[in-house]
Simulated scan of single mutants.
Amino acid sequence: MIRSKEAFLRKLEQELSFHPDCREIVAEYQSHLEEIIHERTFEMKDEQQIMSSVVERLGSPEEIASMWKEEAKVHPEKTSWMFVIINITLFLGGGLLTFIYHAFEWTWADALWLYLTDIPFLIILLYIGFWVFLGYEMGKEFGYQGKHLLKKTFTLALVPNLVLMALTVLRMIPYHWFSPLLNTPFIVTCIVLTALLYPICWMAYYWGRRASV
């Protein structure tokens, strides 16, 4: 039975000794532990009751360590490449649809093209959601290890964005193909949002890391 905050943290550090980020993880849990103790102090006076409440909310040190062991089994490279491939697929899919729309007179392609070009800002919001999910998953699944993975994944996944942006700004793509979208406000919005993707990812990462605790 855990009888004090110090005993909880000592046991947690012992159980997490296998993890390279043991100290950082324990420090994170110490912060949460102190928050819970502060909340419960107004409701409970007995330290044993407070610690029981802590264990009920956070889990025992053994349970927490078990969770981190399971997390370590998730292959980070596979997760990273999954997001990279998804982003590339989105761009290739958009490019293929554009080509089909202009090269063939297919009813379904016309209908889909007209629908999508009517909701550009909704598409942008959904796309931002993809990057939020990327950062959140890196934080939730890999914790502190996710920092380096997020940087790598973000850099690789952003390549299609930068290539398309460069081609657009340099007018190296047929503008008339994208005429419903390539207006000045939309281009400026895309450039600004691309610049904001990195901080958005990091905020989502910290959100995910906090949710994993």
Rank of each mutant, 00 (worst) to 15 (best):
W68L: 04
A204Q: 00
L33E: 01
Q145P: 02
G59T: 06
I85P: 01
S31R: 14
K151R: 14
L170Q: 05
G93P: 07
L149H: 08
E47S: 07
V192Q: 06
T194W: 10
L114P: 02
T189R: 03
M51F: 06
R57H: 13
P180S: 13
Q48R: 12
T189K: 02
I25C: 00
A72G: 02
L149E: 05
E35T: 12
L156I: 08
K69Q: 15
E56W: 06
V84F: 03
S31V: 07
L126Q: 10
K151G: 02
Q48F: 08
G93K: 11
Y127C: 02
K69F: 02
K152L: 10
M82H: 06
G59M: 03
I200Y: 03
L116Q: 04
T194Q: 11
R3L: 14
I200W: 04
K147D: 02
V159M: 12
C201P: 04
L116W: 00
R209N: 05
Y205Q: 01
V169E: 09
L97F: 00
S66D: 14
Y205L: 03
Y144C: 08
W68T: 01
K5G: 02
Y175K: 10
P20C: 08
M1R: 13
P185K: 09
K5H: 03
Q14L: 06
P20V: 07
K152N: 07
T107L: 14
F18S: 07
G135H: 03
L122R: 09
W113L: 03
T194K: 05
E70D: 15
W68I: 04
M44G: 04
G146I: 01
H38W: 06
S4G: 11
K5P: 00
A7Q: 15
L167G: 03
L193P: 00
E62H: 09
T155V: 12
W177K: 00
G95S: 09
L125K: 08
L164K: 04
P120L: 01
M82I: 07
I128H: 03
A103C: 04
P160A: 11
L182H: 11
F121I: 13
E77I: 14
F91T: 03
R10H: 10
L193M: 15
C190H: 07
